[in-house]
Simulated scan of single mutants.
Amino acid sequence: MQWHFSPATGSPFWLNRAADLSFDPRQDVKGVEDLNLFSDVTAALRDVPVANLVPRGYGDQACLLNVFDSGGTTGAPKRVIQLQDWMHRSADQVTRQLTRHSLPVGALWLTVAPTGPHLVGDVLQRAAAGLGSPGLSVDMDPRWVRKLIAQGRSGEVDAYTDHIVEQCRRVLLGQDIGVLAATTPLLERFAQEDDLLEAINSKVEAIIWGGTHMDPDTREVLSSEIFPDVPLIGMYGNTMMLTALIERPGLAASDPCVFDPVSPHVFLSVVDPDSGNQVGVGERGQVVVSHVSKSMFIPNNFERDTALRVLPVAGLSGDAVADVAPLPRVEGAAVIEGVY
């Protein structure tokens, strides 16, 4: 709080808003529970000048690596920045979590995910590098697919999905892929192709899924029947987190998929969307995410997801979440997931 709200070190974005706060963050925010004093400011990230997001404390040492956009599911995309120090922290924590799942070191990856302004492709490519793995990739444009779905152009959606699958086919059949990272709809689509199903089950040593949610029944079928010998590892993340959370190790296919927070930088809470009060353990509510790092501060962000509230593993602060699913509507607009 001292860093982000001191005139010498804070970003113009937060210093400009400090005067309008009804409290003093440097005095009143003492713990994770105090982050709910802030209102959700993420809508302002749609049109803020990127330079205003960089904390002044970096001076001329600020190394701006990326500007990431949110998916734009509920309107114009929101923008965040990734500085070099946070990139290293994020990559290290994702690699540590994947290591707990015994992912193969040095195996060839295929990542099928949005790149460009989207965070997830960057996270996965750095995760592959962290495990000493060269990464092949197939890009996708989730905004275009969602637009097609909203307009009822299902034939074009199918054609675009086929286009992605064909690119993946060349890689999966022609390369010795050890780790496959893809979304739930694409895994289901791969399962319809005998040659891809055989290639994945015979060569791939782990599947990382993320993006669109995976309900418990689908997770169990994919794990037990479609890819019975390939571990499925869930990944939950979004632009406002500026990182990704990896499924808690040791879960059975029939267990809810649990994601723990990343203390002391990414905190989760599960709340009643009407009252904002925390729900009971095991109850479903809306996911609220706070990102607290030297490079960015995004508190009390009401995500477009619901989840079951779970206690985190010992030593972590905030809530863990399980069985993440999208809200049907956000800000009056229907949530469309598409291929991602």
Score class of each variant (00 low, 15 high):
1 M>N: 07
2 Q>P: 00
5 F>N: 01
5 F>I: 03
6 S>P: 03
10 G>F: 02
12 P>R: 01
17 R>T: 06
23 F>H: 06
27 Q>R: 15
36 N>R: 09
45 L>E: 05
46 R>G: 10
52 N>H: 08
53 L>V: 05
57 G>E: 02
61 Q>E: 14
65 L>V: 07
68 F>C: 08
69 D>Q: 12
70 S>R: 01
70 S>K: 01
74 T>S: 13
74 T>W: 01
75 G>P: 04
75 G>S: 06
78 K>C: 04
80 V>R: 01
83 L>S: 03
84 Q>R: 12
84 Q>K: 08
91 A>R: 09
92 D>S: 13
96 R>V: 05
97 Q>Y: 05
101 H>W: 15
101 H>R: 09
107 A>T: 13
108 L>H: 15
112 V>Q: 07
113 A>K: 04
118 H>V: 09
123 V>S: 06
124 L>S: 12
127 A>Y: 06
127 A>K: 11
129 A>D: 07
132 G>C: 09
135 G>C: 15
137 S>Y: 12
138 V>C: 15
142 P>Q: 13
146 R>S: 05
148 L>N: 02
148 L>C: 03
152 G>K: 04
153 R>P: 05
161 T>S: 14
170 R>S: 13
173 L>R: 12
179 V>S: 15
189 R>K: 15
190 F>M: 13
191 A>C: 05
191 A>K: 01
194 D>E: 13
197 L>G: 04
198 E>K: 07
200 I>Q: 06
200 I>L: 08
200 I>T: 08
201 N>E: 11
203 K>R: 15
219 R>D: 08
219 R>E: 09
219 R>N: 09
223 S>W: 06
227 F>M: 14
227 F>Y: 15
238 N>V: 03
243 T>K: 04
248 R>V: 11
248 R>I: 08
254 S>C: 11
258 V>G: 09
259 F>L: 11
265 H>F: 08
270 V>T: 13
270 V>I: 11
281 V>S: 10
282 G>T: 09
284 R>K: 09
285 G>D: 01
286 Q>F: 00
287 V>W: 02
289 V>T: 09
291 H>E: 02
293 S>P: 00
297 F>G: 10
299 P>N: 02
303 E>F: 00
305 D>F: 07
308 L>T: 10
312 P>L: 08
313 V>D: 06
320 A>K: 07
330 V>R: 00
